[in-house]
Nucleic acid binder design. Structure first.
Lengths: 313, 313
DNA sequence: TATCCTTACGGAATTCGTAAGCATG
DNA sequence: CATGCTTACGAATTCCGTAAGGATA
């Protein structure tokens, strides 16, 4: 048993059982991958993959049992290497952040700029993905830090920490009827066509909940994954976006109305894989992004057992 | 990085940093071990071991950080192999039990006999060790199952399950003054020299507690680690042993008096390493030994997170 | 001086990549 | 017939064990 074999198995699953593709990713020849998988199977005495003729098509029962172990070992190997780099005092390294458009576009730029300045040698990798994929990237080790508002809690394998709270606001074109100074209500919003986030994105759930609780039906004309798109189409009606997405100087043609009293407060969370070894620059980045998350706070959460951390902060 | 290197590191720590010894244990030459350790250190860019001249003397700070990762990987590798054996339907394998004298001598024989009959191909390894070492052997992977009355709870890395409850009894030579039929009390016991288990063994704590709570001082003339020794010396006074240790047909010269009402009930526990892959014959053995511990009960406990299991059962 | 680790070197074993073969959709 | 896995084989690499060297208690 060796790590190369384990990597081949892991990558075979990730790449949909296409060994040719696996070979490319692992920078080796395809027969080598075939051999590695076959030899591991021989050593274990069991087939891990289902074969249709000569083609791999899926995992066997044993395969599904065994895969978590394989991934554990490879993640630990990564941790080991990272611990080495850390103590060797190497200033180079990787910081891979998985996050949503909202965060990447509005919340992260300052922290990223500071980080780049302080750690120029660290390769910074910003993965902009849908919220529900953030957890997966963390669990697979492809990302070191995940930041999202949705779909981060309730993973045993993740440690989740509260970053900051925010509310939605309503953006309308200049001269819109809602700018008459009268108080903003759900009923008044519902009089207009609404443009906001797709479901699962950026607090969309809280928006639906508020209207549903009030028993008000809305005319949803367009949903999008990010505030920039939403703002582009605001002339079609009114837009509901995260407050941080409105910038008076940039969005000159638009006006914003605070809607913090209409929709539930959102909590953006940061997550890391439980038990991961984090380079000290990762701790620094986290603190830059969310100052209350000091190194010892994160370290303690990281070492904690599942269930011990608070759901909210 | 490869597993041979990791094994060398683990064994170096276990063998007190004597690489010559490590080489013997791992069936290779001593220079090979030297190289493996050095190459791993080079790859990580950090020294894991403290060197006094050419001799290894301990772990560096990095070393202590890194060792848990190394052990994780090696334990997972064991799990992987075992999962393979299991699904390959091999009837051979290993069952390594770490337990105390009391259990090995009185509680386990029946279960062991049945097991041997049912799984003749499985090499059964019975480690008789002091209670406080049972947990260590489980955590290191040297033992698969631990059985003891003391010092098994409160390990995060172990899953502990209640097996059975038992009480102490008093053994005296035939014709002893205590055999007058009058009720047995702590005060009456204290009139005689007492022989019982050493501290930390077989419910000794409950014996001390009972006398201490009653404010009675006792004359402890001899302590031993096992009931056989205690019984041998009973003529020097009276012995307090586990009830299961008294066998009327074998211990003809002795009489036993139930002392269940004098000392707290003891709970013997069985433990396995959390997350370990257990062969099905291991589940069978556990159920044979403690019938309430059926396969699904154990499997569920095994997969549980720390803190979720009851302290007592 | 005995023990223990390192270095050096030749040989064994493993592992790799290329090329050819074969099955599947 | 294009894609994808396996087999075969020579080459390169890695890894090991023996033998010799040096440091420490």
């Amino acid at each position: 048993m060796n790590f190369q074999q384990l990597r081949a198995v892991r990558e075979a699953i990730r790449r949909g059982y296409n060994l040719t593709e696996v070979a490319k990713v692992l920078h080796t020849s395809q027969p080598a991958i075939s051999r590695q998988i076959r030899e591991l199977e021989e050593e274990l005495g069991v087939e891990l993959f289902v074969r249709a003729g000569k083609r791999l098509t899926g995992l066997t029962e044993v395969g599904t049992v065994v895969v978590p172990l394989v991934e554990n070992m490879l993640l630990d190997a990564d941790n080991l290497r990272r611990a080495g780099e850390e103590y060797a005092g190497r200033d180079s390294g990787r910081l891979s952040i998985a996050t949503t458009h909202s965060q990447a576009r509005y919340a992260l730029p300052d922290a990223v700029r500071d980080f780049r300045q302080r750690y120029p040698q660290v390769v910074l990798n910003l993965h902009q993905i849908p919220p529900h994929q953030v957890a997966e990237m963390l669990l697979s080790g492809e990302a070191d830090v995940g930041i999202a508002t949705e779909a981060l809690a309730s993973y045993e394998g993740l440690v989740t920490l509260p970053c900051y709270r925010w509310t939605h606001c309503v953006v309308v074109p200049q001269g819109h009827a809602l700018l008459d100074g009268a108080p903003l209500t759900l009923a008044r919003l519902a009089e207009h066509p609404i443009i906001t986030y797709g479901s699962g994105y950026t607090g969309r759930l809280h928006i639906d909940d508020a209207f549903a609780a009030a028993g008000i039906a809305i005319d949803l004309v367009l949903t999008a994954m990010d505030a920039d798109v939403i703002k582009t189409y605001v002339e079609l009606g009114l837009g509901i976006v995260a407050s941080i997405a409105y910038d008076p100087s940039r969005d000159r043609g638009l006006a914003a109305l605070d809607a913090g009293h209409l929709f539930a407060v959102n909590l953006t969370r940061l997550a890391v894989r439980r038990g991961a070894f984090l380079r000290s620059y990762v701790f620094d980045f986290i603190e830059t992004f969310a100052p209350p998350l000091k190194r010892d706070v994160v370290a303690q959460a990281l070492a904690s057992e599942p269930g011990t951390q608070p759901a909210e902060g």
